[in-house]
């Protein structure tokens, strides 16, 4: 069982989108997946077609003392996922602190080994965006930690200020190919000696929000779209990367 985590450099860069699509793409390539939403926004489930009114999920289960894995669902396409869930008496925001989330994750990771999931299941974790001055949420706890950024000057500056981030591999999301600035920023990131940037870039594509409006990923709503191809490529890269991790260990 391999674990990878995706975290946004800041909010709104498309981390949840990337998790849902990466999961769907891996599933389509024949790799069993389990998606875990650690982000209090509880939005991952929307891509997987869950109705609004269902409130079950990870946090309600953990706080009510029932086993967390009983909150697992399968989407229409067969992707297993655990939504964050909505608590009946929502606590203050800071209760989902970095330390709490890390502790939950440790427990989940430990107990997941006991579950009868298909062999080689890949677990993908959606983390809340990086807070100011924070380290990566699941640093040292996962095999692969991707940091999602947009190729805009804001992200670029923020990334430069945080360097070095040795544990993270940077995924560029929403590249406008026709913007010279964004292409140049991408080239600069790729050339940077201190930042590891993925060779796969996700391009901006209006099909993504439209699919979300259908509560779907682009793989169902627009299979020919650029986004579908990009995420499929990302999945191939991730899978090959994990294979290398296996070889090393």
């Amino acid at each position: 069982m391999k674990w990878i985590a995706l975290q946004g450099l800041k909010g709104g860069v498309g981390t949840t989108t990337a998790v849902a699509h990466l999961g769907e793409a891996c599933h389509r390539q024949g790799r069993p997946v389990l998606l875990l939403d650690l982000s209090p926004g509880n939005l991952l489930r929307v891509y997987l077609g869950m109705p609004w009114e269902v409130r079950r999920g990870l946090v309600p289960a953990l706080t009510s003392g029932t086993p967390w894995y009983q909150a697992a669902y399968r989407s229409a396409t067969g992707v297993r996922f655990i939504p964050f869930g909505v608590e009946s008496h929502p606590p203050a925001e800071q209760d989902y602190s970095r330390a709490v989330l890390r502790q939950w994750f440790r427990q989940i990771r430990r107990e997941a080994e006991e579950l009868q999931l298909p062999a080689q299941t890949l677990c993908i974790v959606d983390c809340p965006a990086l807070g100011p001055g924070e380290e990566l949420l699941l640093q040292d706890l996962v095999e692969l930690h991707l940091l999602v950024v947009n190729p805009d000057p804001g992200c670029f500056a923020s990334l430069r200020q945080r360097e070095p981030l040795p544990a993270a591999q940077v995924l560029i999301n929403r590249l406008h190919a026709e913007s010279r600035l964004e292409c140049d920023l991408q080239d600069m990131l790729l050339a940077s000696p201190t930042t590891r940037v993925l060779p796969v870039t996700i391009q901006q594509d209006a099909h993504v929000p439209e699919s979300l409006a259908w509560k779907q990923t682009v793989f169902q709503a627009a299979p020919a779209s650029q986004a579908a191809q990009d995420f499929a490529l990302l999945a191939s890269w991730v899978l090959s990367q994990l294979r290398e991790v296996e070889h090393v260990s």
């Binding site: 077609g49 869950m50 109705p51 579950l115 259908w214 509560k215």
Partner: peptide, 14 residues
């Protein structure tokens, strides 16, 4: 849009 296979895993049925 169908949600036919949305169901939690009951532990004894693993």
């Amino acid at each position: 849009m169908s949600l036919e296979t949305l169901r939690p895993w009951p532990a004894p049925l693993w």
